[in-house]
Amino acid sequence: MEVRTIKVFTTVDNINLHTQVVDMSMTYGQQFGPTYLDGADVTKIKPHNSHEGKTFYVLPNDDTLRVEAFEYYHTTDPSFLGRYMSALNHTKKWKYPQVNGLTSIKWADNNCYLATALLTLQQIELKFNPPALQDAYYRARAGEAANFCALILAYCNKTVGELGDVRETMSYLFQHANLDSCKRVLNVVCKTCGQQQTTLKGVEAVMYMGTLSYEQFKKGVQIPCTCGKQATKYLVQQESPFVMMSAPPAQYELKHGTFTCASEYTGNYQCGHYKHITSKETLYCIDGALLTKSSEYKGPITDVFYKENSYTTTIK
């Protein structure tokens, strides 16, 4: 009895394709271990004539594949690729409408935090270190965002349907971005203890939790000093293409032309909904596939993004 075979390709990165001759009487799992086709788990399936010449994702289970996976995804987590594939199996079914010149995501599976993050990423200057993220990001900007969303979920250790947080998501993504040249110098002034300067680099240099107003941050924000008295913390120097200011959701007025974009969060910790506000020729609110415009805006804002380049204080 002759062994019926077909020729397929296996890959971990969709760049390096490895030619395989597979036995049609055995499952993919018996031949390769966990195997995925377009995100779908085909591990328990036997090869079919229609699979001839198709590319299958496999887990990096030998040295060659491990090197290829690390170079593309910059992670050695053995569960990463499987999590990416199972997320992709959902995100490829989502709709990605162009809204006001940006790629958004039609609401499904509690994905409003991903839509808000995706919209924000198209408006701030950011370059990702893992080629996987950078490639998928370019495709997302062009309207094909399924891979990018699935990668975000995998890097953030999230599953489809789980509630997510924009600030946490951005923080994970910033860790995989090139923020080497970003720098922030802060000064804390206390009447009792004097003053202390701190220099922050990388992710810490672009994120701040405690106030939404970048102007206020430049002037000074009140913080408790270690001595128990009130101290003032203010920005001395900022070198970065953008800054992200966050605070627990509270009524906040966004003035046209003073910011790049913002995240609105309605609801409580267990259950809520994100919308995205962007400042173009007027203010726009993007909620999944829905767009509304207004000249002014007041609502429960939790993150505001500002364009920056270089700032030095005039406070002496």
Rank of each mutant, 00 (worst) to 15 (best):
E71V: 05
I315M: 15
T226Y: 11
G257W: 01
P60Y: 06
F128N: 01
T19G: 13
D41I: 11
L102A: 07
T11F: 05
P248G: 05
E125F: 02
L254E: 02
N178R: 08
V206S: 02
H256C: 15
N89Q: 10
M24C: 15
E162R: 03
Y311E: 11
D135V: 08
L59W: 09
L179S: 04
N100Q: 14
Y284Q: 13
Q196V: 10
G82P: 15
D62L: 07
K191T: 14
E239A: 08
N187M: 15
F80V: 04
W107C: 05
G161H: 04
T91W: 04
T43W: 07
P248F: 15
T91I: 06
A69D: 08
Y137Q: 07
C112K: 04
T198F: 14
G272D: 00
T282N: 11
V304I: 11
V304A: 00
Y137F: 14
K183D: 03
F56R: 03
T292N: 09
P60N: 07
G228M: 01
I301T: 01
H256I: 15
K92F: 05
H176C: 07
A115T: 12
S25L: 12
C182N: 02
C285Q: 12
K255L: 11
N61R: 13
I124T: 02
E308T: 11
Y73F: 09
L126F: 08
T292R: 10
T10C: 13
Q30N: 08
T302F: 00
L163I: 00
S86P: 05
K219I: 11
S50Q: 14
E68W: 09
Q251V: 11
A115L: 05
F148R: 02
Q123H: 06
L119S: 05
W107M: 04
T226Q: 13
T260D: 06
N187D: 07
H276V: 02
S246A: 02
S246K: 00
C271H: 12
H18M: 06
T10K: 13
E308K: 06
G39V: 08
T313H: 15
H256Q: 13
S213D: 14
D38L: 09
Q237M: 11
D303S: 01
E168H: 14
L151Y: 05
H90W: 09
L283I: 15
K229P: 02
G257R: 06
K201C: 10
V236P: 02
Q123L: 05
G101R: 05
T159D: 13
Q197R: 11
H48W: 15
L17N: 09
Q122N: 03
H273R: 00
I105V: 07
G220L: 01
A289N: 11
K95G: 09
L119H: 04
A40C: 12
D287C: 00
S246Y: 06
P224E: 11
K233S: 12
Q31I: 14
T226M: 10
L290N: 15
V12L: 07
H74M: 10
I124A: 03
H273C: 03
G29S: 08
Y73Q: 06
I277Q: 06
L186W: 12
S240N: 01
L179W: 07
G194T: 02
S213R: 03
Y172P: 01
C261S: 02
T198V: 14
V243P: 00
H51C: 07
Q20C: 11
Q123P: 03
Y138T: 15
E264L: 06
R66H: 09
K54N: 14
I124Y: 03
N100R: 09
H48S: 14
T19I: 13
S181P: 06
Q134D: 07
E2M: 11
Q197I: 09
A262S: 01
G164V: 05
F56W: 03
V3M: 14
N16H: 12
T75E: 09
Q195N: 13
T313A: 15
M85E: 02
Y72E: 07
D180I: 05
K92Q: 11
K127M: 10
A117D: 02
D287Y: 00
P60E: 07
S50H: 11
M207K: 08
S295Y: 12
S310A: 12
E52G: 12
D180L: 06
S86A: 15
S79M: 15
N129F: 04
C271T: 06
D13E: 06
L118H: 03
Y96A: 04
E296T: 12
A247E: 01
L133W: 02
S213H: 05
P248Q: 12
Y214K: 02
E125N: 12
H18R: 09
Y137V: 07
V203N: 06
F80Y: 04
F70Y: 10
F174M: 07
A154C: 06
E2W: 08
E215Q: 08
G194K: 06
V42Q: 12
K44I: 15
K201M: 10
H256A: 13
G267Q: 11
L163M: 12
H90V: 12
F9N: 13
A145I: 02
K298T: 10
T302Q: 01
F70C: 10
S104K: 03
C193Y: 02
G288D: 02
N61E: 13
K92M: 10
K298W: 12
H273V: 01
E68D: 06
T313Y: 15
F259V: 02
A177K: 03
Q196D: 08
C285W: 00
I286N: 00
G272S: 00
V21M: 15
G202S: 05
P47V: 08
E2S: 09
L283N: 00
D41C: 13
K46A: 14
H256G: 11
Y269W: 15
G82L: 14
S86T: 12
H256D: 06
G257A: 08
Y214E: 01
T103N: 03
G288W: 02
A136V: 02
R141L: 10
D63M: 09
P249G: 00
S25A: 15
H273E: 00
L114C: 03
T19R: 12
V206T: 01
N309Q: 15
S246F: 03
F70K: 09
S246C: 08
Y234R: 10
K233D: 01
L163Q: 08
T199N: 07
I223E: 10
V22Q: 06
L102K: 05
M245Q: 00
A117Q: 01
Q195P: 10
A146I: 03
L17T: 08
Y208M: 09
V236G: 01
Q98E: 12
L283G: 01
M26A: 15
C156K: 03
D303Q: 00
H48T: 13
E68I: 05
S310V: 15
H48D: 14
Q134H: 11
R141H: 09
N100S: 14
H176M: 09
P224T: 15
A117S: 09
Y306S: 00
N111I: 02
S79Y: 09
S50L: 13
L179V: 05
L114N: 04
I124H: 01
Y265M: 00
A132V: 04
L114F: 05
V203M: 10
K95F: 10
K280A: 14
Q270S: 15
S279H: 05
E125R: 07
T198W: 11
V189G: 04
P47E: 04
I301Y: 00
H256T: 12
L59N: 14
T10D: 01
D135H: 11
C182I: 02
W94V: 00
N111K: 04
L212E: 01
Y113F: 08
Q30E: 14
P241W: 02
Y306K: 04
K191Y: 09
T313G: 11
V236Q: 07
V189A: 11
K218H: 03
Y234S: 07
K219G: 08
K158P: 00
